[in-house]
């Protein structure tokens, strides 16, 4: 890869590494596994970066790579890896009861997310990352904004039913 491409990828790496990690974490909910998968996805993205015609589609491309790799990883690790419990917010004022309640609520939330079909799940996770709006999610998934809106609506309805 040429020096220019290297520099361009380096610039994109800095701003997209967190996105890849969070997408992987949204599937795996295990920090170390998510880092491994994100690292693998970013390395793969680097290898294919010179062949990517539309550079502005890089983030969407990276999301798709990471999502698929994370799903594959989860399938292969499902039996032996226990998922990480959601980290609790640090705060001196929080009591043990608050921590337990927060943890239970998070676990229920993740169970509701896991119960969603894949099409709705990815929309929900991307909408929850870095305050992505509908337009950003539609760009990342290469879907019309209307489709994203309807899928997000359906996902929230189902999650609310499960969480009540």
């Amino acid at each position: 890869m040429s020096r220019d491409l290297d520099q361009e990828f380096e610039a994109r790496l800095a701003e997209s590494s967190r996105l890849a990690f969070r997408v992987a974490y949204g599937v795996l909910r295990h920090r170390e596994d998510a880092e491994d998968v994100a690292q693998e996805a970013l390395t793969k993205a680097y290898r294919g970066f010179c062949r990517l015609r539309e550079r502005d589609r890089y983030r969407a491309w990276l999301v798709r790579i990471t999502w698929r790799m994370a799903l594959d990883h989860r399938r292969s690790q499902k039996r032996r890896t226990a998922r990480e419990s959601v980290p609790t917010p640090n705060g001196a004022s929080e009591t043990a009861t608050d921590v337990l309640v927060a943890r239970e609520r998070s676990e229920r939330l993740w169970e509701a997310i896991d119960a969603l079909p894949e099409k709705l799940r990815i929309v929900t996770i991307l909408a929850g990352i870095e305050e992505h709006d509908i337009r950003e999610v539609s760009l990342l998934l290469d879907l019309p904004e209307g489709t994203v809106k309807s899928r997000l609506f359906l996902a929230r309805q189902r999650m609310k039913e499960l969480l009540q």
Partner: peptide, 10 residues
Amino acid sequence: ELEEALAIEP
């Protein structure tokens, strides 16, 4: 809640 759950830093 979703944003909080996904606000994990590497």
